[in-house]
Structures are given as structure tokens and as C-alpha cells.
Design a protein around this nucleic acid. Structure first.
Lengths: 342, 342
DNA sequence: TAGGCCCTGGACAACGTTGTCAAGAGAATG
DNA sequence: CATTCTCTTGACAACGTTGTCCAGGGCCTA
């Protein structure tokens, strides 16, 4: 009776505990634990009684307590930039599938491309003692993760390399992809090609720009300053950049878009333009086939899957040196990249 | 010394605990706890010593233990259908923002439209004692949640109503949206309008179908069986359904697509078709403006935000009867819905 | 029938944290 | 100077679970 009263004031509403189940089933605490965990050494009859008590009380094991005792949370953290970005949805989903196959839950958070917020999120996840972390870096200094990694939290960086820290990474071949895309435009006769990309702080942005320069250098073309624009990828900035490149006496005849957000805005701008400007975008977009947009496609799901599999291999004890995996990209010609110079 | 040895074998790598910090700083355990939680009653000098010890050891509070003691996990669970679906990315992100504003983390999982998997996920989240749940139901019987809700886990159902359980819900006006969309087609002269939707098990699918029927009834049009097709929304099934409606002696002159996946496939099929078939789709799609697709738009972010705010109001103690919020939809004409009958 | 063994079940401590409470040191008051 | 009061500090229990270890009972064997 006193027992009941105590529980009705308990913090979890009035969740029954194993102790309550044990009392109701007339067995010891540990026996309930055994039944709940399907451990051997319980007679069918006892097990039945315990199960009945569990049903009757609506008992559900408290995983917090379990975690405290066992030291494994069976959860991993995923810190990405923005879940609303169509590139990260499939990535996150792929990570989740792998986690599920390993019986783990996924906690995720968006950094909104803010290094401070990234750190805050990562540390919160560490405080929960996630078993592992997959991080799409916003910042470029991850030394704050060192104590955590030393303490055994497996970490894989994705899409962009980690800063000042030695860890596993899974990247797409941004340099090679951009180089191939720009070379494609060159092959179709373009000599004046614009590049609109993300902020230089972001590794993929500079890698793609490097690929752009490499392709033009390969073709013996000298890049003019006005052809390149790096910065935030909100529609307003991208629109302004694109319009600037298309205006003036010697406008570009083709554009290379540094990521999916840039591509979307570029398509809008080009649709309003009377001249036919060629376009190749980094990242595939839904319905791009119908719009005839030529893209460099990276397989977001494959990136996520690879990273997660890496992580779980670490969690299962793999102790080799940090690896750096680079996944290939693919050029998908659909028309916009094959337009001749206007 | 023995202390050190014990810890070096500990399960969390060798994470220092408050006890270790206390020993190093030469203070009591509780004093460390006070510093970590910024509780009052610690002299600046003591605080400094403790902070130093925390830094030196790389201490990070173990939230599992904290949760066990305090009873609040400061995390909420989100169970949706598929994170890779462009409708759910923004929804999830909106939920995350609200959670973040309340200092909570978001754990999410995909049910893949499988009721069993939904239940499995929800119960796993309950075992972790998330403070609250936001569920996009896959199944139609949620009585399994009753003990959990009674035990104090706040729950909000989103996008589709809960089955056999009294709880808060945030829905979009599927019926009204579909009715308006189909009426739009009727207003543009169509009398033979096809409907391709999701499986009838899914509430939004039947609501939208109901809207379709209502609009046609309003116009005094009798629906033919062959105009309606419900089922999985994978491209193959949708394509087959669309092609069937467009073939035969009396084909439909317009299509209403029951969700974004259907719309995407429908656009592809119609693009291959020589006749101009009108199309209105439920859910907006990126770049739909460029493709000129008329849609019924529901604001995924608003749905997520509303649900999350509802949830936290519950967590902050709101105890009114379960509410049912229905958010309006918006018809966005872009061309495809305004085509006259071929 | 005695001895030993196996099998089931339970008592107890421990995980790392926070709430309660009481003790001790100074400061303020009479 | 004695007393009370305040402020800082630490000892201890508790949260709900699991691992360790031991006890008791039934069964088999000699």
C-alpha cells in the first residue's frame, strides 16, 4: 500500500518498476530482470507469472537505468547541417537504416552551418553517452572532440573533413566532380564559365572551386575574377551573383552551380533569361530530369550508409588507423550542360 | 591509485566522474555537482578549483545518471514515415527548432509506413523515457500507447489521426484541399478526372478521396470506377495507374495526384504523353513553379512547428482535453491545373 | 539413504548523478 | 562574550537496472 502511494507520486507519472512487477508476481527482483532480458534460468511457470504481472502493470523497462548500469546506450548521434535540405534527408535515412540493423536509435540535430551550434550539439550528444557520432562539420576545428574520442566515442566525419583532428572520414569527390562538370562545359565549346559556390569556410566549396580552376587550367583558359562568386547560398545572394555574371559586355555563357541550393536558384534565373545559358549543377535534384538539368550527382544515401557502416565497425572493435574514404561522383547529362555558347 | 585502476577499466573508456573531479579539486562530490549545475552557494575560489579539475580531466556530466535521478530526459521522439521524403525533412526540422528552443534533443525514426515498425520504435522511445512523442501514424490502432500516455508521456499525432486513442492531433485539411483542387479542375471544364492516391489504410488518402468525390458531387458528375486508383505510391504502380486512365476510348482529361510522390511520377508520365492532360497535385514540390505544376500546398514546417509547440505546452503542464487542430491548405495555380480538356 | 550436483531464485552492491539534511565556520546581534 | 543567523560544504540515500554470488531444493548416483 505504502508502495503504491510512493509510486503514485513518482516522477515518471507512476511507472511501475521491476520491483513492483516482482512484488506482484511474488518473485525476486532479479528474476524479473531475467525474464525481461530473456536470460536463461527461469522455469516456464515463473516466467509466465512474471509476464502476466508485466502486462497487468504496463511495465516498460527504464533504459536510462539500464544504460547507467551497462554503459552502452545503443544510440548514435548525427549532426548535420539542415534536415530540411533535400541532400540530407536521404543521408539521414540511410544512417538510420544501418543503425536500426544494429539495434541502435538515431538522435539527430541540425547545426545550421554554425560552428558553435555544432559543438553545443555534439557535446550534448556526448553527455548522453551516445555510442558513436556522425558529424557533418560546420566548423573547422574539432579539437574539442579529442577527450570524447579518447573516452571511446567513435566518430566519423562526413561530407567535409574534420579540422585538426585525426578521425575517420567519408567524403564525396568534390574536386573531381567539379572538374569533370566544368570540363564537360568546356567540351561543349564554352570558354567563359561562371562558378557560384558556398562560403569558402566550407571545405566542399573550396574543393569544388579547385576542380573548376583545374578544368579551366587543363583547357588553357585564364579565369577572370568576375566569373567566381563564393558566399551564402540563400536565393537572394545567388540570384545577384548570377545576374552579375550574365550582365555586362562579356557575360559568361555557362554556369557551374556549387550545390543544390545554388542550382535551384540558378535555374530560376536562367529561366527568365532570353539567351540560352548552359548549366551544370553539383548534386542531383528531384525532377531535374524533367527540367533537363545536367548535374554532378553524389549518392547521399551511399555516403550515409558508408559512414554508418564505418562507425559500427569501429563500435564492434575495429582499431585500424583512421581511414579516409572518397566516394565517386557521376556526371548525368540531361540537356542544360550540353547547350552551346549563346 | 586503486581508484585510477578501477576507472581505467571502466566501461566508458575511462571517463572521469564527479567523484574524480571532487578528489582532484579536494572538495566534496556535491560541490562539484553544484558547480556543474551552476547552483548557488559556492565561493568563487572553490568554483575556480573545481573548474580547473573539470578542464584538466575532461569531465563531462553523464546525462544517463542525471536522467535516472531527475526523471526528465529533455528529449522528444519523432516517428515519421520516411525522412527521405521531401515532405518530412522540413517538418522534422521545424520540430527540431522548437525542441531546441526548449532545450530538448530530438530522436527520430522512420516507420517506413509499417505499423509494426511504428510500434517498435515508439516503445523503444518510451523505454528511453523521452518526455514526449510526436507520431505520424502508420498503423490505425494506437491503444498500445495508452499505458505510456497514462504514465505521463505527452503525445501528439500529426498528419493523420490516432487510432482508437484520445490524443492531441495536428492535421492538414486533406478533405478541403482535395475538394478545392478537384473543383479547380472542374471549373476549367473537366468532367472526367482521375484520382491516384495512397493506400486506403492511410487516413489522408481516404480523406483526399472523399474531397475528390465531394467536388465531383458538387458538380453533379458521377464518378466512374476506372477513374480512381488507390495503392502503394511507388513509381511503377502509379505509372501503371496513370497509363490505364489515359488509355481506352474515354480517357480522363485531368488527373488529381494524392501526394507528392504520385505527383512526381504523374508529371513524368504526362511529359511522355502527346495530349495535354491537366494535373493538380497534393503537396508542393521543389521546382514545381518552374515546371508549372498546380498544387495544393500544405505547409510542412507549420505542421511540425504547431505539433511541437502543442507538445511542449503539454509538457509545461497544460491539461485541457485533447485538441484537434486542422491547418488549412492553399491552392497554387501554376499552369498544369488550368489546362482545358484535351 | 547419503552425498553431490545442477538448476532456479533472491539478496546485495554498483553504475553516476541529484535532493535532503546537518555540520561547521564566520558574521552579526544582544 | 554568548547567541543566533547565514553561508558554504559534504555525507548519505535514492533513482531503476544488471552483475555477482550464495542458498535451497530437487534429482541423480553410488
Amino acid at each position: 500500500m505504502a508502495e503504491t502511494a510512493r509510486h503514485s507520486e513518482s516522477r515518471y507519472g507512476n511507472r511501475p518498476t521491476m520491483k513492483d512487477v516482482a512484488a506482484r508476481a511474488g518473485v525476486g527482483l532479479k528474476t524479473v530482470s531475467r525474464v525481461v532480458n530473456s536470460e536463461p534460468g527461469v522455469t516456464p511457470d515463473t516466467e509466465r507469472r512474471v509476464q502476466e504481472a508485466i502486462e497487468a502493470l504496463g511495465f516498460r523497462r527504464n533504459d536510462s537505468a539500464r544504460v547507467l548500469r551497462k554503459g552502452r546506450t545503443a544510440s548514435i548521434g548525427l549532426v548535420l547541417e539542415d534536415l530540411a535540405d533535400p541532400f540530407y534527408g536521404p543521408l539521414s535515412r540511410a544512417v538510420e537504416e544501418v543503425a536500426r540493423a544494429h539495434g541502435a536509435l538515431l538522435i539527430n540535430g541540425s547545426s545550421a552551418e554554425d560552428p558553435e551550434r555544432e559543438q553545443e550539439l555534439v557535446l550534448a550528444l556526448c553527455a548522453r553517452r551516445v555510442d558513436g557520432l556522425i558529424v557533418i562539420p560546420a566548423g573547422d576545428d574539432h579539437r574539442y572532440l579529442e577527450p570524447e574520442m579518447k573516452a571511446g566515442i567513435a566518430t566519423v566525419f562526413v561530407d567535409r573533413p574534420a579540422g585538426r583532428v585525426d578521425a575517420d572520414m567519408v567524403l564525396s569527390d568534390s574536386f573531381g566532380g567539379a572538374r569533370a562538370g566544368v570540363a564537360h562545359l568546356v567540351a561543349h565549346g564554352h570558354r567563359r564559365i561562371g562558378f557560384i559556390g558556398d562560403q569558402p569556410r566550407i571545405h566542399t566549396a573550396t574543393e569544388r572551386l579547385r576542380g573548376y580552376h583545374a578544368a579551366l587550367a587543363d583547357a588553357g583558359i585564364e579565369v577572370e575574377d568576375s566569373w567566381v562568386s563564393l558566399g551564402p547560398t540563400d536565393p537572394a545572394r545567388v540570384r545577384a551573383a548570377a545576374e552579375a555574371m550574365l550582365a555586362g559586355p562579356e557575360p559568361v555563357t555557362a554556369l557551374f552551380a556549387g550545390n543544390n541550393r545554388v542550382t535551384v536558384t540558378a535555374v530560376r534565373v536562367l529561366a527568365e533569361c532570353e539567351r540560352r545559358i548552359a548549366l551544370v549543377g553539383f548534386d542531383d535534384i528531384e525532377l531535374a530530369d524533367l527540367l533537363g538539368i545536367t548535374v554532378i550527382s553524389q549518392d547521399a544515401a551511399a555516403v550515409g550508409r558508408t559512414a554508418a557502416e564505418h562507425l559500427f565497425r569501429r563500435l564492434d572493435g575495429a582499431a585500424h588507423a583512421p581511414a579516409r574514404v572518397e566516394l565517386p561522383t557521376r556526371l548525368i547529362p540531361r540537356g542544360s550542360g550540353e547547350l552551346p555558347p549563346a
